[in-house]
Design a protein around this nucleic acid. Structure first.
Lengths: 247, 247
DNA sequence: CGAGCTTTTGATCCGAGTCAATCTTCGTGG
DNA sequence: CCACGAAGATTGACTCGGATCAAAAGCTCG
């Protein structure tokens, strides 16, 4: 398992490097983290609202999402996760999990005990700062999503989500030529943008006929990146990727 | 100014204590932080999107908000701030400010140089963890707001915002008997909930005639707290205030 | 006491939701 | 290799929550 893990955690380290250089010592400490690596089917919850986890998960392959439900059963997706993300890093400091996290595609997930993460943070304050930074970037993305959901029209909302996913996947080496894997369903886009499935479908068709996206067979391509960015009102500043200036 | 600052930063320390006990040594280190304390009028920006601040601000008295604008000038408020909050603590780790922060009422704000905060974090890792924690709680609130904006009806959205403000103000000793100061305008509630000013006004009137709120003269009272919570679908878990279990 | 905000009210309109099929896709088992 | 079933994608018809527009009414403060 060890050899598997060292190669498997590559997306994790690449994600951290998008925000700050990782030194060789830090890298080897990261590679030495005890990590239980597991394959998980699509549409499985990793953790649920109300849990009090004793470990964090790292998405090593596949896609996921964080979501919350209203009392009457409506779902809001608050984040999409791509390889390298630590979707519940917050649980290291906050006992109570205020949201649920699940897979959207067949995935490989690594679980790291809280105590191991606390130890590496204690020994390498620089790494602790990088972890903090990733949660701050997550928060920045939340703010942008609030703007998206609260103040943009449906058409622009959907375009914005596609822009963000292209840039984030590009940053971890999973997009080329404005093209990437895109396994989320229209139901998931609907719950992420705060609109209905039917309407998402119509907006996607509008984006298609405007020549801004090609979306089929689980692949997304943006033949007119400038046009898609304009449609989404997308400015990547909120992703805080000075280092990995996206395509 | 020193004596002023020691009493003035009380709300700041009280806020941190809502999340974790602050030891005497930590408290005196906090009190020793170099802080430039300034009175600021209502509706002034403290920082603007695109800034690269070299200090953080602490709201010591008054109310504020964080907001973003779409390209076509629509505003989304992503957070309300109450005394004790550090609305741009993120700038300690993220160079680029992705949002603007301003006052909503006449306020007293303390400015702390980044270097001083970095120093106290280095010397007192426990305090660094508390700071991290406050940003994680902010992120949790963002997630709840996304749920609010994306998936609740206007009536429930407005009720939810009132619930949250009552609980947060209670936690810093600024609410009694489900009653607190409430200087935000209906325009601000509109931009926070993603609906129009006119509709906010109608929802407030509905909440009034349902006997759930009394809102006038800058004061909010919830005569039927259980009813208001139900209307907002409000569950305070996301505020992570195990310690200061709110009224 | 008047200017400039907010808050309120009324009338009208439209973006998006809901409902109900139908059509595709795709994995599964025969 | 194909039939079958389930899930997702699409389409059309109709409805509605909330936006927009326009005015009037209250407040606050210089």
């Amino acid at each position: 398992m060890t050899s598997l893990s060292i190669s498997a955690i590559r997306p994790f380290i690449r994600k951290l490097e998008a925000f700050r250089t990782i030194s060789d010592e830090e890298r080897s400490d990261l590679e030495a983290l005890p990590m239980q690596i597991t394959e998980i089917r699509a549409d499985q919850d990793l953790v649920r609202e109300g849990d009090r986890p004793s470990r964090c998960c790292v998405l090593l392959r596949g896609f996921g999402h964080t979501y919350k439900m209203t009392e009457d059963g409506k779902r809001q997706i608050t984040a999409f996760h791509v390889p390298g993300d630590m979707p519940d890093l917050q649980s290291l400091e906050l006992q109570y999990l205020d949201c649920s996290i699940g897979t959207c595609s067949p995935s490989v997930v690594g679980f790291i005990p809280h105590e191991a993460l606390r130890e590496i943070c204690r020994l390498r304050p620089q790494l602790a700062a990088v972890f903090w930074r990733t949660t701050l970037v997550d928060a920045s993305i939340f703010r942008e999503w609030m703007l998206n959901i609260g103040r943009r029209e449906a058409y622009n909302r959907v375009a914005h989500v596609f822009c963000e996913l292209l840039v984030r996947l590009n940053a971890v080496g999973l997009a080329r030529n404005h093209s990437c894997e895109m396994p989320f369903t229209q139901i998931e886009f609907a719950d992420a943008t705060g609109i209905s499935t039917v309407h998402v479908n119509r907006m996607i068709q509008d984006l298609r006929s405007a020549g801004l996206i090609v979306l089929r067979g689980g692949m997304l391509t943006a033949p007119d990146w400038a046009g898609l960015k304009a449609a989404g009102g997308f400015d990547p500043g909120y992703l805080h990727m000075e280092r990995a200036l996206a395509a």
